[in-house]
Design a binder for these strands. Sequence first.
DNA 1: ATTGTCAAGTAGAGAA
DNA 2: TTCTCTACTTGACAAT
Length: 226
Amino acid sequence: MGATSPSGLELTMAVPGLSSSSGSEGAGCNNNGNGGGNMRDLDINQPASGGEEEDFPMGSVEEDEEERGVGGPHRPKKLRLSKEQSRLLEESFRLNHTLTPKQKEALAIKLKLRPRQVEVWFQNRRARTKLKQTEMECEYLKRCFGSLTEENRRLQREVEELRAMRVAPPTVLSPHTRRPLPASALTMCPRCERITAATGPPATALQPSSAAASSPFHPRRPSAAF
DNA sequence: ATTGTCAAGTAGAGAA
DNA sequence: TTCTCTACTTGACAAT
């Protein structure tokens, strides 16, 4: 299962029975929702439409190495990848979540970015994917916790009911003689609270409580010697 | 003013 | 030593 979240994250999660509601949280998904994009959609490789000065946000390959900002702000402007750049990055991320140096170089040339920028984009993209997956797993575990708590409550109630029903000790047959054992010869298994013969193989209860016969407490126990 | 997003910086770990 | 990764942080910017 691979879901694409509103923010374009492709998520895969190996959680049984989880229908990853792909667009669950729409809270912060402002980008690429309508394609129209009310967000300023700067192409960092184009000069800003109005002002023709050195108005590059930063980091396009054209302006790369030069030491600008001598005494200037250490983080001058924020790069915004263009739609096309993001699309191509997403596309290659879909194919591969990591890049070889060659792939990185090629992609950087294709996108007119520095290899470092491509690398950073992939790092951040992986981080976002992982975060999303973690959030989904968290949701899933919360649901599991809820249903297990409910199941636990139900079983506790069942135990209480069974305890209340057990007025007299059940008649237990000896495994050897097939005759009823005296109560003094019986013990209670501390784990399953089942009545057994004090020695020898487990005795056969004549009137096992209906739940004890197919109790969920003892699923396929390797015939332990009690 | 606050909040969310995201590119980029930094530190530390691990592999070659 | 160098490279790449993850995890965490920072700061710019848009949306509310």
